[in-house]
Design a protein around this nucleic acid. Sequence first.
DNA 1: GAATACATGTAATGCGTTACATGATTTA
DNA 2: TAAATCATGTAACGCATTACATGTATTC
Lengths: 200, 200
Amino acid sequence: MNDPMVPSTSTSTLGYALLGLLARRDLSGYDLAAQMKRSVGYFWQARHSQIYPELAKLEAAGLVRHLLIHQTDRPDKKIYAVTDAGRAALISWLTSPIAEAGTRDELVLRAYLIWLADPLQAATLFRDQQRHHAARQAEYEAILVALETTHGPALRRPGSIPFASYAALRRGIGYEREYAEWCGWLAEALGGATSAEDLE
Amino acid sequence: MNDPMVPSTSTSTLGYALLGLLARRDLSGYDLAAQMKRSVGYFWQARHSQIYPELAKLEAAGLVRHLLIHQTDRPDKKIYAVTDAGRAALISWLTSPIAEAGTRDELVLRAYLIWLADPLQAATLFRDQQRHHAARQAEYEAILVALETTHGPALRRPGSIPFASYAALRRGIGYEREYAEWCGWLAEALGGATSAEDLE
DNA sequence: GAATACATGTAATGCGTTACATGATTTA
DNA sequence: TAAATCATGTAACGCATTACATGTATTC
């Protein structure tokens, strides 16, 4: 019953992430690796060493195809595009039931074991993390401002491409805000200084 | 310079999680696996197939030792205890600089690609997730109430063992609250029904 | 008679990171 | 001349899940 040209191989989440990026526009493996350092990279990452083999798998499964671009001044490159089958697989996956993966957070683990540590040293750790997450939050908020100025009202229109970015961004901002707040509360409770300067 | 009895092997995060549980009280591998389904399991998980080899590694590194308990009605078991070296390694790790691991969240990835999906189907997915995270939040809040009744004011005293549980729990509650809120906002924006009953 | 609790392991497989490998062009 | 950018791959290794493997005692 299976078409030998389109074997029903189960695609990994990374595969869908790549298909999703390619659904916006055609890209090379190198471009995809660059995208994975920003935008999508905030909630799904992969190195080029994982991306190239994954693209080969997607191509073998008939979900993408590539066009070889010959270049003289630079190395040749392969521009990948989503096939009809790839687009269908992606759309089907998007609303399929989600398998919950357990959370792994090393900082929360440390909080759970904090009774073993020196309170002031621990406070410094959590104060540092508070600053880190607050900085990340500010970074996301700057991206939001940029999105607002370039897309205007389309940003708030569900169904539009910018709205999808906006939705993901909103989660990022909320996540970092809540994380920073918790770190601040804990550092405070442990009696830590408010800023690094106070320790000098 | 290295003591051959205590080789400086780098312990994994799981190793520290196990050391942390054993610092509270001596436990068997089976007990540790059970603990990993609740308490710590909310922010760090491992199956028994990963725990048994890890305990062997910790023992080879001199961080834990075990006592074999012979039982007639049940299988024999090994009760593990933290050594002085293990306790020292754990305390040192607790406040050591933390290497930030990138976040991987499949639901946020799907949100980023939502423009490809049918809005109403997508709304159902996010409404389901909202319910899931709200339920998880309620579960954590119930544990908090239980902790409050059993430990009383000690729960709010930084440095106490219950306070560490309380701190981790607070993060869990905040995380789920913010996550559920975001899911609800997105489902609403996509024009989804408020409850499953509205769909019938 | 079936499932669950107790108890401890190993093997196969998949996902992800780091390191290895090559090589031209452009910028500091 | 050192580095970053462009461009594509492979190999080794570690962490995590699923499945394989065994066996008794209790509970439904």
